[in-house]
Amino acid sequence: MKARFSTVLFAVYIAFVFASLVFGFQPGKDIGSNFLTFTLSMLKILPGAFILIGLFQVWVSRERVEKHLGEESSILSFLWVLLLAGTTVGGLYVAFPVAYALYEKGARIQVVLAYIGFAAVSRIPMMIFEASFMGIRFTVVRLAVSIPLVVVSAVVLGRYLKASNWKMTSPQ
């Protein structure tokens, strides 16, 4: 039912863009070209990201993930996901499926949430741009403040979610 609703919505959207093309309605044409631009830039990243997720799924054992990122893992687990986040491409929309893959293999909620936060604030390619346009001081201050806050909020929210028996879900 829900899937059908979004299908109808998307059909209406496509019809609107198409009609705008035919009748020369500029706002509709702009919206359509925005859609294409963003779709293309995302298609450049998503297939690769999902292939890596698939490879991770078949090659990395649950025991290994649990040992380093699971319930019994040490504070180092945050360092591992910080490094992983540093190399994450794209943006949050790539981080979510990666986070789910970690979670499914036994990473604890705190570590999964920290990964999302790190993937937002500390992707290396993004930071290179930032430092070169805003100055290294700006970037260092931002990182020095946001990284500890990401850890603290991930731990607090993670504990709360665990206590309330929350589970991450996979869209199918």
Partner: peptide, 12 residues
Amino acid sequence: KALKIAWNRFSG
């Protein structure tokens, strides 16, 4: 199998 997982998750 990895490619299948990749496709399933992507299409999901």
